[in-house]
Amino acid sequence: MSPLVYVCVRPQQGAAEAEYESFRSAMRLEPDELERIDLVRESLPDDAFTRWRGFVVGGSPFNVTDPESTKTDVQRRLEAGLTRIAERAADGETAVLFTCFGIGIATRTLGGEVTRAHPEDTGPTTVALTDEGRADPLFGSLAHRFTALTAHKEGSSKPPAGAVLLATNEDCPVQAYRMGDRLYATQFHPEPTAQAFTERMAVYRDDGYFDAGDFDAIAARVNAASLSEPTRILRAFAAAF
């Protein structure tokens, strides 16, 4: 059986390496079972959909809603790669779990709306499953309300037509959805432990996600949060696909 692959879209290599390890650990996979492709530094290969049976897409400091005139060649290239993955998964030709930045790519590609109207502060938030989420193969075994970690400047205001909304909350109503049977997308981060998330916070401390002076207070909230549920999505994805 071909492996899964982690898709890196973070320019910061240390943060990307840690994110990969968070995904691998959460999915309980060996390195040869979860490979890596770095779209910041290389294009999606032509044989991607035969080399790997499915994709998990990490977060990024890029934003889908950045004006096109300000996007670098790197951002345009990696967005093009993620768009290809979204299109193939929506057609049932591969499986993918987009997270954070990736949900914006999937939403835009498939005809939904991404705006700056639904940012969320860095740290823990409460997410609620919809009725459809409670019946979903990946989400259905989760607690109906659970804590997840977020940090984003944009969000999906409307999922793509035909998508099944799986999870929501007041600040960002599109927290997770499924398109067809093989494309999943979450606004929240399902992979990090509290320690991994606070280490990532340190990398992006001065990037406008939170007031740098609030680092210790936010880290304390993260460390106090129960984060048992989101990683179960990743384990279910690895088992299903």
Results as ranks from 00 to 15, higher is better:
1 M>E: 13
1 M>G: 13
3 P>Q: 11
4 L>N: 01
11 P>F: 02
20 Y>R: 03
21 E>P: 01
23 F>I: 11
24 R>Y: 05
25 S>P: 05
25 S>T: 10
26 A>N: 03
26 A>V: 02
27 M>Q: 09
29 L>T: 11
32 D>E: 14
35 E>H: 09
37 I>K: 11
39 L>H: 03
41 R>E: 14
42 E>G: 14
43 S>W: 02
47 D>G: 07
50 T>V: 13
52 W>T: 12
57 V>C: 03
58 G>Y: 05
59 G>K: 03
59 G>L: 00
62 F>T: 06
62 F>E: 05
65 T>Y: 15
65 T>Q: 14
66 D>A: 06
68 E>R: 12
76 R>A: 11
77 R>D: 12
81 G>A: 11
81 G>M: 11
82 L>I: 01
85 I>Q: 04
97 L>P: 04
99 T>F: 09
100 C>Y: 13
103 I>L: 15
105 I>H: 02
106 A>M: 05
108 R>P: 10
111 G>Q: 13
111 G>W: 11
112 G>M: 12
114 V>Q: 01
115 T>Y: 12
116 R>T: 15
116 R>G: 10
117 A>T: 14
121 D>S: 15
122 T>E: 10
122 T>F: 12
123 G>C: 02
125 T>E: 07
127 V>F: 01
128 A>C: 04
129 L>W: 06
131 D>E: 15
131 D>Q: 13
133 G>R: 02
135 A>Q: 14
135 A>G: 15
138 L>A: 08
140 G>M: 06
140 G>H: 02
142 L>N: 07
142 L>S: 11
142 L>K: 09
144 H>K: 13
145 R>T: 15
150 T>E: 14
151 A>Q: 13
153 K>F: 15
153 K>H: 14
157 S>W: 07
158 K>Y: 04
159 P>E: 06
159 P>G: 06
160 P>V: 08
162 G>E: 09
163 A>H: 05
163 A>L: 00
165 L>R: 07
166 L>S: 04
166 L>Y: 11
167 A>F: 11
168 T>S: 14
173 P>T: 05
173 P>E: 09
174 V>F: 04
180 G>C: 00
181 D>N: 01
181 D>K: 09
182 R>W: 06
185 A>H: 00
185 A>F: 03
188 F>Q: 13
189 H>A: 02
189 H>R: 05
190 P>K: 00
191 E>A: 01
191 E>I: 00
194 A>L: 00
196 A>S: 08
196 A>M: 01
197 F>A: 03
199 E>D: 15
202 A>G: 03
204 Y>G: 09
204 Y>I: 01
205 R>W: 07
210 F>Q: 09
213 G>W: 13
217 A>K: 14
217 A>M: 11
218 I>M: 10
219 A>F: 00
221 R>M: 06
222 V>P: 00
224 A>F: 12
224 A>R: 03
225 A>W: 04
226 S>A: 15
226 S>L: 08
227 L>I: 09
229 E>L: 00
232 R>C: 07
232 R>V: 09
235 R>F: 00
235 R>D: 11
236 A>N: 01
238 A>P: 09
240 A>Q: 13
